[in-house]
């Protein structure tokens, strides 16, 4: 499959009136719209069941939207998923990867799956070094890796694909402070390389630290969206709590229940 040329005038990621209603009536996403440009980190904040992962799953075509569209470089993900996925990389929460493979073998497999079939061992090792995995662990099986080390492998997999957009689903959960800090620094360098980054997280402090735009989600809706500039000098935690409280007071549940039971 030859890779499409990217139209740089379009947002790398764009959700337009994205709605997902499950068969049991639960409304997981309710007309959500946002866009993420190249060189931008867009953070979705919200509790469990807010709809963050559902949005990411629609971009990845793991589920189809009930209505609306998720576009990757202008390609509608559920209409042309194979084409659309050429332009995205993904880092999930709690990446286990293949425990019988070494870090290098895992990276090699996913690199080839992502269309990078001609990378040399040195090039692959350079990516592992970049994410902070020292050379002595490159040939070790992932069985003995800590969560932080596995997460670094996951990031390496996303980087090696060299996609224009990166989706991250709760990537920092369970990381120790040092690993979390390294991770933030890495995301910043990816932003500097003009990647569009869409990240879902519960972690308000990390969101504050790296986001160019923060969207607070609750019960399938974006209840607040502000650019980093607008957030300057504000206490994001307080803001988050205020919005959540407001949302609880004002949002009527059209389906008779929150979307528990589905991935958020």
């Amino acid at each position: 499959m030859t890779k499409d040329l990217i139209d740089n005038t379009l947002p790398a990621l764009e959700a337009t009136n994205l709605t997902k209603k499950y068969e049991d009536g639960v409304l997981a996403l309710d007309k959500v719209s946002f866009s993420v440009n190249r060189g931008e980190i867009f953070v979705m904040l919200g509790g469990n069941g807010a709809g963050k992962t559902t949005a990411i799953n629609i971009f990845l075509n793991f589920i189809e939207p009930t209505s609306g569209e998720a576009k990757i470089n202008g390609i509608v993900s559920h209409r042309e998923p194979l084409r659309a996925k050429q332009h995205i990389a993904f880092v999930s929460e709690n990446v286990m990867l293949y425990p019988n493979f070494t870090a290098l073998q895992n990276l090699d497999f996913f690199a080839r799956l992502g269309g990078k079939q001609d990378l040399t061992r040195d090039e692959l090792q350079a990516v592992l070094l970049r994410v902070g995995l020292q050379e002595e662990v490159h040939h070790k099986r992932l069985k003995g890796f800590s969560k932080g080390m596995r997460q670094k492998c996951g990031i390496a997999i996303a980087i090696v694909k060299d996609a224009s957009a990166i989706l991250l689903d709760e990537p920092t959960s369970g990381l120790d402070p040092k690993a979390g800090r390294d991770f933030v620094e890495l995301l910043k360098t990816l932003r500097d390389e003009n990647k569009a980054i869409l990240m879902s997280t519960h972690d308000i402090f990390r969101a504050r630290e790296i986001a160019d735009t923060v969207a607070i989600m609750d019960r399938g809706k974006i209840i607040m969206q502000q650019a980093a500039g607008e957030l300057a000098g504000k206490d994001l935690e307080n803001l988050y709590m205020q919005y959540m409280a407001g949302s609880n007071n004002h949002t009527t549940n059209t389906t008779g229940g929150v979307n528990a039971g589905h991935n958020s």
């Binding site: 194979l82 996925k85 050429q86 929460e93 990446v95 286990m96 293949y98 997999i157 694909k161």
Partner: peptide, 15 residues
């Protein structure tokens, strides 16, 4: 699916 490698694999253009 449990290891998360299914999601990771299908984040690529894999039929």
């Amino acid at each position: 699916k449990e290891r998360g490698t299914l999601r990771l694999s299908f984040a690529n253009s894999l039929p």
